[in-house]
Amino acid sequence: MRKTQKLLHKVADLKIFSPFKAVFETIDGIVYGTPHVTPGAPHFLDHIEIKRFMIFAVAALIPTTVAAVYFFGLHVLWMIITSYVVGGIVEVSFALIRKREIEEGFLVTGLIFPLILPPTLPLWAVAIGSFFGIMFGKEIFGGTGRNIFNPALVGRLFITMAFPEIMSARWIAPFTDTLTSATPLTVFNGEGTITSLRELLFGIGLQTGAGSMGEVFRIGIIAGGLFLILAKVTDWKIPTFYLGSVALFSWILNMVSPQVAPPAFQLLSGGLLFGAFFMATDPVTTPYTKMGKVIFGVGAGILTVLIRGFAGYAEGVMFSIILMNGMTPLIDHMVMENKYRKSTI
């Protein structure tokens, strides 16, 4: 053991710090790594661990985050910091109360959550959303790995419901500061105009509307999502079937009803790409069975097209993913029962 590590252990053993054991353990784990060795076969283990797993997702979000700061200014940075601080406090206090280790899940949630918010949202709203999302989306279920719903989406759902006015009229186009209620999707719902696909893809020159701060730079989202798939952090099935079913069903429904936008516009507008690559791929809240992943993707795709086309909301990604999150245990159960229906040994 290193000298500094020994010192840390000595400080942690002091009586006044005894309620904060989890904090010291986390610092120990983050800085020095684990001193534990394998108890038996297998005698050495893969280098993947939860922190490394999470840092991959954060790395994949860097292009999107940098673009958001570039497009919408420094307020974005403050929103991210607020989200991390509030989320971190909730996570740490829960760990201390439960006398468990601090889990690393909020590293990703804390970054994803502000990225799905309008860029001018006041910081107090970010704080409330982050608190609610991590507390009721995750901690009350038992922490990372045991939650049913994606915590970032739970937080956003809460502030959408609680403060509808600031969530619907707080959008700005990149490089401007005029508040507007028009995103490409609301513009389509109102006037039937389709924003130029090239503008949507790069996020630059968006005149007709804006979006959540993380969803505007779509090239960056695609790059990050592909990186995660190539890195084998996320599975390719959910994004592929999600985007594929959105394209397919919007193509079919578009021929029936003009209320439904055509496939290319559906794919490139709103939070679909961000949702498909970063939220629907959260391993905890999506099915673990291979067939279940396919069902999840297709189901979320149909729901997205239906909500966007026929419901009162212009955006359907958040609702469809949350709904499918709720169905995940059922999907998994059905797939497993179907696969192993024969009663054999």
């Binding site: 060795v37 394998t38 993947i48 939860i50 280790e101 990372t144 790995g145 999506t286």
Partner: peptide
């Protein structure tokens, strides 16, 4: 023989 990380709840990765 290092464990390369701490034990956590299953992520279904």
């Amino acid at each position: 023989t290092n464990m390369n990380g701490e034990e956590r709840a299953c992520l279904s990765c």
